[in-house]
């Protein structure tokens, strides 16, 4: 059952990706990108990565869609027809895909207990979280406590990214508070 669902979702994912490449109307492209994110989120749920699925659904399907719509509203509604089609990009994509598939041959099976990622610090976190932190969600324990430094770094990255956007396109000089003071 799980295999059928996973195959169906992957099939839908590929179909969505092809549709995104073919459709010229950018509004439809943005909506399809949202569909792509939701399908990916469902795949993550099937792989038991609920936290990742949650983020994918909230950020990929929610916020990104809104921001892309905002971008379309500022720019254009349809993609320009390319002057000529060339085979080079297709060849590059196919070759890269083949190399990636070749790379997966060496990887351990999905969910295999022998995988290196399952044998390093993972078992320690799972064993010690109930004693150290008394929190049922090990993901939260790892993110906020064991790896608190990393998460602080991530928050700083989000902060810096926001700062960049504010400085680049919102224009701090147009702060409404200052404008109001000038009007008074």
């Amino acid at each position: 059952m799980e295999l059928v669902l996973t195959s169906l979702l992957f099939f839908a994912l590929v179909a969505t990706a092809i549709a995104i490449a073919l459709v010229r109307r950018l509004f439809a492209v943005v909506m399809l990108a949202g569909v792509f994110s939701l399908l990916a989120a469902m795949l993550f749920v099937l792989m038991d990565a609920v936290d990742v699925a949650f983020t994918e659904a909230a950020v990929g399907a929610g916020i990104s869609t809104v921001l892309m719509l905002g971008t379309i509203a500022l720019t254009a509604r349809s993609e320009k027809q390319p002057a000529s089609y060339s085979l080079v990009p297709l060849v590059i994509v196919v070759l890269t895909g083949l190399v990636l598939i070749y790379g997966t041959l060496d990887m351990p099976n999905f969910g295999s207990p022998d995988a290196p990622v399952q044998q390093h610090v993972g078992p320690d976190y799972i064993r010690k979280t109930p004693e150290d932190i008394h929190v049922p969600n090990v993901v939260t324990a790892v993110l906020a406590s064991y790896r608190g430094y990393d998460t602080l770094g991530e928050v700083t990255v989000v902060f810096t990214a926001g700062l960049g956007v504010i400085l680049l396109i919102s224009g701090l000089g147009r702060r409404p508070r200052r404008r109001k003071r000038e009007e008074d």
């Binding site: 936290d51 949650f54 929190v135 969600n137 939260t140 324990a141 993110l143 906020a144």
Partner: peptide
């Protein structure tokens, strides 16, 4: 800390 999710989501 009890279910999926956290500050980011």
């Amino acid at each position: 800390d009890f279910g999926p999710g956290g500050g980011f989501q």
